[in-house]
Design a protein around this nucleic acid. Structure first.
Lengths: 216, 216
DNA sequence: GTCTATAATTGGATAGAC
DNA sequence: GTCTATCCAATTATAGAC
């Protein structure tokens, strides 16, 4: 029920994720192409967008794209990877900060929703176009998402043990919360007040689903 | 704060949805084709599945499909419509039954999740392949979903007025709840215990997000 | 209503000059 | 690294016999 020493926590980081580092998406032309492609993919769907269309958006001809990506599918993979792997690397460290499970999870969710809002199109594409990836690439993306989900489950489980949260199945709660917040990328528009959305959803998750003790 | 007469309720059905009735999806060959297509679309994505593949699954040649559907996109439309319109027609009447907002919404969510579990592939396709529809068809589907969402919002608002629920923004709560439960279609497998999932999620929504008074 | 055959188009990817 | 030109494969949809 109490934490041990303040150094180790019972939801401490499990095996760190394998150091696969295919190629950085950030780095000039490549990033520019991926960003343009993500916008088109999000609006019209992966298969209806042609290489020529993407090329035109960044001011080159279709054939020139192959100097930056070996195939169209590689563009999609870069987008999906930047979203899943990127989100994991930027957000998950917050779970290792000081604080109770409730404060740490709240921090993660705030970062998660903000990340999702900033990379809305990439998120949408990464969620929706999984079936267009090669089996190998799809497996990579799925692994990253599973790892993320497991970390959330673990901090929820820690909160249940400490008495902060009251749910029967931390794994199911993690899935429900992540599906709920990821749903934001489907309807978020620039008109929305992000701060408002963030606080509302953190409340839904922590005070709502996880029944964070609110009477004391 | 109290209900008027027991006949009218303050979340009573708004304008009934327009009686567009393009063609019944149920009815022999057409339904068989749509069902097969839905399975393939869900697994591999709309654009990677060919008419030949669908035809083979129902024991005919690709060209013969055009005796039942005018185009491939019409198959997708039939699937999406059967899912959105079908769900609305089967589930929404539960909101007009007797009972408090909490019991009526719980009944709707139970039916919603069961409907989603029984038509899992259609649900997945209807959620994911919207961008492959013609603008007109996409607008139809979106209208149905908006109507469904509005009905959920209204019953939540009624629950807030009656003091059963405690949320600031019923519309936002409706979106969050529907995104959460619709997320089920992404990971549900036949191994899962549906009854368990249903009760867990109804709890997340009613007792959790909506903070249904649980201390009295 | 199903078939065979094929039209018509699209779009990913490559060759090779510059 | 970008271009022009082109190949090539895949796929929706149609024509017309049965």
């Amino acid at each position: 029920m109490s934490e041990r020493e303040g150094e180790r926590r019972d939801d401490a980081v499990p095996e760190p994720f394998p150091p696969s580092r295919p190629r950085p998406i950030a780095g000039g032309r490549r990033a520019e192409i991926a960003a343009a492609a993500a916008r088109f993919f999000a609006e019209h769907g992966y298969h209806t967008v042609g290489m020529r269309e993407i090329a035109e958006a960044v001011g080159m001809r279709g054939a020139s794209l192959y100097n930056h990506f070996a195939a169209k599918e590689e563009v999609l993979y870069a987008i999906a990877l930047g979203m899943t792997k990127g989100a994991a690397e930027e957000n998950l460290p917050l779970l290792d900060d000081e604080g109770t499970p409730a404060t740490r999870l709240a921090a993660l969710l705030r970062a998660h929703i903000r990340h999702l809002a900033e990379h809305r199109v990439e998120h949408l594409v990464g969620l929706r176009e999984l079936s267009a990836l090669t089996p190998e690439h799809r497996a990579q993306i799925t692994d990253h998402r599973r790892y993320y989900q497991r970390r959330v489950r673990d901090v929820i489980a820690a909160g249940v043990r400490s008495g902060e949260f009251a749910v029967d199945d931390p794994g199911q709660a993690a899935v429900a919360i992540l599906d709920m917040v990821n749903g934001i990328s489907w309807w978020l528009r620039s008109e929305h007040d992000i701060d408002q959305v963030v606080e509302t959803y953190v409340g839904f998750a922590i005070d709502g689903i996880l029944q964070h003790a609110r009477e004391r």
